[in-house]
Amino acid sequence: MTEKLEPVVTEWRRVSPKYVVVDLVGTLVFGVVAVAATSLPAVFSHNGYLFAIPAALAVVFLVALILVPRRVRSIGYQLRQDDLLFRRGLMFQRFVSVPYGRMQLVDINRGPLDRAVGLSELRFVTAAAATGVAIPGLVAADAEELRDQLVALAESRRAGL
């Protein structure tokens, strides 16, 4: 394996380790539902070969579950001079840089699992739908602080579209 992509050499701000729990439970629930749904045809048709589909899915989700802690550790962000840099992914690495002046709004989302462990997700919206930057697993107070900070930054560097 050759070296990983690393556009900037700095310390990344990581998300809360508690997010591992949220992601684990979320993946598990999704996996169970998906496996159950895909095994329905096999159950009703009494065709044993059809069980191959849910079995394959189960393996995929199992691998995904094992990788969850590392995947969560791979999520990082950092506030630079002029933009917010966001990264995520292990196998499929993705880096996005969003200039502060481009942020149109900042959302805070809290799902039921997030609320249970006191986390929030911060989502940035620019004029481009493809930007799609969401930082999950922030401690609720941090998320609000970060939001206010980002909104202030965006306001001070406001540019047109």
Binding site: K4, Q93, F95, S97, A128, T131
Partner: peptide, 16 residues
């Protein structure tokens, strides 16, 4: 001046 954000991506195949 019209760029909203930038993205850099690398999957396993590209990394190899």
């Amino acid at each position: 001046p019209r760029v909203q954000s930038l993205e850099l991506r690398q999957g396993p195949l590209l990394r190899r």
